[in-house]
Design a protein around this nucleic acid. Structure first.
Lengths: 331, 331
DNA sequence: CAATGGGATTGAATCGTTTCAAGCTCGAGG
DNA sequence: CCTCGAGCTTGAAACGATTCAATCCCATTG
């Protein structure tokens, strides 16, 4: 494999000059630059990442930790997120390092190992809890990071999030506009911040629409298809009347639709259903699921941008992106 | 951040000794080792990845490229795969670098950049086509890799795969054993090797069971839920009789179940349905989907193991893992 | 008691970059 | 014709580990 010296020799210059050309630092005469570039191309030279890293004290690598213990992230949404992140990283010439962590207690150690071992310049936190110990740890250790999602305190740390409350308000308003008055809501354990915000949005929406808030219409279930199915079944079994149903995630909405089908209350026709996320499955459901789309590309881009700022020692402003109501046939 | 010299100074030894302790290379007296380990712990020292990389000519990093162009990998199966890989990497103290590539033509260049820039020691190929240009490229360039899946030629390269043909044979045998004679099969574009193998397995299974092969029962569709839905609908619309249905993937099976429901032919009761993959959604379907489970943990482990061998210059034997028939209520 | 030998330890070179300070070239100005 | 300085270019010193060869220590043996 050619090194910078080989390039230098071939171009008849010194390694320093090659470096200047590579990084656009330092003044280089156009014809010299030309010669260097030609030599690079001819040799198929690529700078050695480790060596650069050693000297520049930068890895240009972003660390993403996938929790895989209690709640294994099997929601297809995360696959979309990974794709979006990968794309955004590519745009900014960054690499994406993914680590999994079975033991939820061990992820702090994993973070330390990756950062102190200079494998990554900083982290991207996903799957945030309302009280998230990772935040304090990272802040205390002075490790740059950006979170996808917020914590309860909304303390001063950089995050990017989708405005779940606004989304749900919009959904409720839409349903209310169509005459629905009894709108059920499938929530989930409030450990996760986004679940909490979305529920708040529902409440605010109901209030804004002047609709009474019947707590019996609010159910908590697991964040899976099955969770949605069971919650909807329970709701139907208890005979609490409702004409529309909002779910915290698409997956739950899909499960709920299943329950409605089985109960003979055709989703879309007899009961309006709206989900959240717009996973690929949503469009393929029957009927196609009306949902609030998370702007994946913007999320990826915002996260990476904020991450870069954080790594450069800045304090990037939080970013709150609006979801978009995608009207399909389920509502 | 402490370096190896700091540790050495604190332990009263030379950097060389610390290195020996860290890597278990070279002889070190127990009490010296003890002192060094204490110093490491006290300082919270982690070796600098870049520096090691530079000297050892190893990154201990495995590259995974997610194609994201034509066929964006939105099948939840890939999320499971990523998890399994991450876990296996953790076991072997490796890091997992994920890159996405929008332009299908550009992935060869991406491979070169990552490898020649010594960001990874080798690659993991997924989503294999029957004729896959990446194989030739990697072989020609002498870049270590392991594929998840095979190509048509089954040329001499290391791969790990799940025996799709065996799985489908088993599924057909199971159905035949229950008295089914007319078993429909939802296939997909044969570009992907696994699709081809699974179809072959179906054919072999039918033959082995002494069942007639009615080509009208074999449909090709897209590898999505919608694809399965449409294919099943077409099948029903044409009135070709069948009492059981096999699909190339769970996602397709899920779509087909939807079509059966709509046509009033209750899956599980009136039509037996079997999928392939055992994605998390399968167990949550209604009825829960009988399917062939891919042994994710074994796959991850086998891939990483083979990858390590390949990186060490060996020619690891291909590994063909058997899927397991998971009986649920759909068949 | 001196020589020997093997295990433990160390000094120094090296991996491939970046970057500072120093050097070179060449045209303009005195 | 010399000096000066701007603009390019370069030599060499890091960065933080690994590893070979050399040295040191100490117990054993003749």
């Amino acid at each position: 494999m050619p090194t910078i010296r080989d390039v230098a020799r071939r171009a008849g210059v010194s390694p320093a000059t090659v470096s200047y050309v590579l990084n656009n630092s330092g003044p280089v005469r156009p014809e010299t630059r030309e010669r260097v570039l030609r030599a690079i191309a001819e040799l198929g030279y690529h700078p050695h990442a480790g060596a650069r890293q050693l000297k520049r004290r930068r890895t240009d690598t972003l660390g993403l930790i996938l929790p895989t213990g209690e709640r294994r992230l099997s929601d297809p949404f995360f696959l979309e997120l990974i794709h979006a992140l990968g794309d955004a990283c590519a745009v900014h010439q960054l690499d994406l390092l993914i680590a999994t962590c079975r033991d939820p207690a061990a992820d702090l150690r994993l973070i330390d190992r990756l950062y102190k071992g200079r494998r990554v310049d900083g982290f991207l936190l996903i799957d945030l809890r309302r009280r998230d110990p990772r935040i304090a740890h990272l802040q205390a250790a002075g490790i740059p990071f950006v979170a996808f999602g917020r914590t309860e305190a909304d303390g001063a740390f950089p995050w990017v999030d989708v405005d779940g409350a606004a989304g749900m308000r919009q959904a409720v308003a839409y349903l209310a506009g169509k005459g629905h008055r009894r709108i059920a809501y499938l929530s989930a354990p409030l450990t996760f911040t986004f679940v909490y915000h979305r529920l708040e949005g529902y409440r605010q929406g109901m209030q804004a629409a002047g609709l009474p808030l019947d707590e019996r219409l609010i159910r908590s279930a697991r964040l899976t298809m099955e969770g949605g199915y069971e919650a909807a079944r329970a709701l139907l079994a208890e005979g609490v009347p409702f004409t529309a149903l909002l779910a915290a995630t698409d997956l739950m909405a899909l499960g709920a639709m299943r329950a409605l089908h089985e109960a003979g209350r055709a989703p879309g026709r007899e009961v309006a259903v709206i989900g959240f996320d717009d996973i690929p499955l949503a469009a393929q459901a029957h009927p196609p699921l009306t949902t609030l789309r998370q702007p994946m590309d913007q999320i990826g881009e915002a996260l990476v941008r904020a991450w870069l700022a954080a790594v450069n020692g800045e304090q990037p402003e939080p970013v709150l992106l609006p979801p978009t109501l995608i009207l399909r046939e389920s509502a």
